[in-house]
């Protein structure tokens, strides 16, 4: 069952930006803590249900809170239920990686005969919707997290060279969900790829790192800082990887007001300036 804000249900469902229930809310506070140097995580969910009739179903055992955790990369899917408004679970190292979606629900435990809620929209007056076992009574927006192992994943791996509508001889950065595109014209893409392939195992690669990846990373750090209040990038995979890299290198986190991102980018790339062959000719 995918999350869709405009999904049509055959019965009232308490959910964001919808008036099936009048002046009621179902909000879930989710926290995900990653254990250091592993992919093990702990998930903590607090459910806030603001409707007396639905709360009555929970108290009578006819409904329960449910947290659905999905990770398509590791083929993982498991549900956790509780009649208490709090669910906490730990996932061991290796179970989750990549994109993880956590979706909170309130669900019917059995067929509900004749259930009505006082706060239903007047459009439901006189109607007797059917609630089967498993019916979703309330839902909140799912949260997305990225869990990546840090081993042998250089910061440059979050960039991908791609062809874009860019004048020949220039390049530009475009943050996407999973990576950051380094866009160049078609011929320049081929030139850069060929250079990377030819010089990939030589010191000459540092010229490419200094000339392209370093300024791109500086831009990306500044852009992520600038937009931290808007939250534009926080659900993106590269964002959490970049934040983790800053933490590992004892740099200020993304969103910090007074970070020196020119210095931080050089730290993340192991001070590429001094590695350039032109500076080391004897």
């Amino acid at each position: 069952m995918k999350w869709e804000e405009t999904k049509s249900w055959p019965y009232p469902v308490l959910r964001p930006n919808n008036d099936d229930y009048q002046k009621a809310a179902f909000e879930v506070n989710l926290e995900l803590d990653r254990l250091p140097d592993t992919t093990a995580v702990e998930v903590d969910a607090d459910f806030a249900l603001g409707d007396a009739d639905l709360l009555g179903l929970v108290e009578s055992g006819d409904a329960e809170y449910l947290l659905l955790v999905r990770c398509s990369t590791t083929h993982f899917r498991e549900e956790f239920r509780s009649c208490e408004p709090h669910i906490r679970r730990r996932f061991e190292n290796g179970m989750l990686t990549g994109r993880v979606e956590i979706a909170p629900f309130l669900v019917a435990c059995s067929d509900l005969q004749g259930f009505r809620a006082e706060r239903w929209h007047p459009d439901y007056d006189g109607l007797s919707p059917r609630f089967d076992a498993g019916s979703v009574l309330a839902v909140d927006r799912p949260s997305t997290y990225w869990i990546d192992s840090a081993d042998e994943q250089p910061v440059t791996s979050m960039f991908r060279i791609a062809e874009g509508n860019v004048p020949s001889g220039q390049w530009r950065c475009r943050p996407l969900e999973e990576h950051v595109a380094l866009e160049l014209s078609g011929p320049d893409v081929e030139r850069l790829k060929e250079a990377r392939s030819r010089f990939g195992n030589t010191k000459d690669l540092w010229h490419i790192i200094n000339g392209v990846y370093l300024p791109a990373l500086i831009w990306l750090l500044c852009e992520a800082d600038r937009s931290s209040d808007d939250g534009d990038y926080q659900d993106m995979r590269w964002y959490s990887a970049l934040d983790s890299a800053l933490e590992r290198n004892e740099c200020k986190p993304l969103g910090a007001n007074d970070a020196d991102r020119v210095a931080d980018a050089q730290t993340l790339l192991d001070n590429p300036f001094v590695e350039m062959p032109v500076l080391n000719i004897e």
Binding site: W9, P10, L66, L68, E79, A108, D132, A133, G134, V136
Partner: peptide, 14 residues
Amino acid sequence: RGGVVLLDALSDDQ
């Protein structure tokens, strides 16, 4: 059925 009922919420028997 899975579009209306959350299959994960059902017991094994259900």
